[in-house]
Amino acid sequence: MAELYRVESLCRRFGGAAAGVDALAGVDFQIAAGERLGIVGESGSGKTTLVRLLAALDRPTSGRVVFDGMDTSNAPESALRRFRARVQPVFQDPRSSLNPRMRVGDIVGEPLRSLRVAHTSGRVGEVLADVGLEPEAGKRYPHEFSGGQRQRIAIARALAPEPQVLIADEPVSALDVLVRGQIVQLLADLVATRRLTLIVVSHDLSVVRDLCERAMVLRQGKIVERGPVGQLLAGPRSEYARSLLAAIPELPE
């Protein structure tokens, strides 16, 4: 498979050289087109920083992110239009990732407008249908929807420009337990039918198991383990991954 992402010695430091904190302290990996990669980590692991760098929403302190041959980490915003149409993020909490004062139709249509993507007039209705919402939903405001529906809206917005890559940052952890399964299923279906490359960042190993084939474990800005998801769950090699796995609360048999 063709290499799509190449991440080289990626570092991101917050708060200056002396007293700062390394959110990412040298991370290297590649992602092939069509691959489904899970990034596992707890708060403070640097996973959110990594998402922002992969989506070109932040700039690294050093190192670079190369997407399909283009160094996105130092590109000016004006050069990123094509990239943004191809790579779309979905954030954790749809209560905060949807502008409360915009109609759903405008929210979902925003990437089409801003990125000047050629589209038919019915495009917004189509993507809303793709995520299981009525086209009429476009006329309403985010607060009129449940948490799960709002995450569907956020996914619809990400799908609108027909991206190649979806980056999901904790896509279900802000949702109610029973809704999580539905959103995970929706993501799985979308990825399969559209042959999307998927990057899922989560502290929840079951989400990574259900959506990804390969996983990396991130701790304090470094990758401590990587490999197939099955192997990570069945026989983690690093001490950290082992304790992480052991800490998950599970029902007694």
Binding site: L178, S206, A246, I248, E250
Partner: peptide, 14 residues
């Protein structure tokens, strides 16, 4: 039933 099923399905330890 749905809660218990979801929790069982979410179990990842082999």
């Amino acid at each position: 039933q749905a809660l218990v099923a979801a929790a069982r399905k979410g179990a990842v330890r082999g």
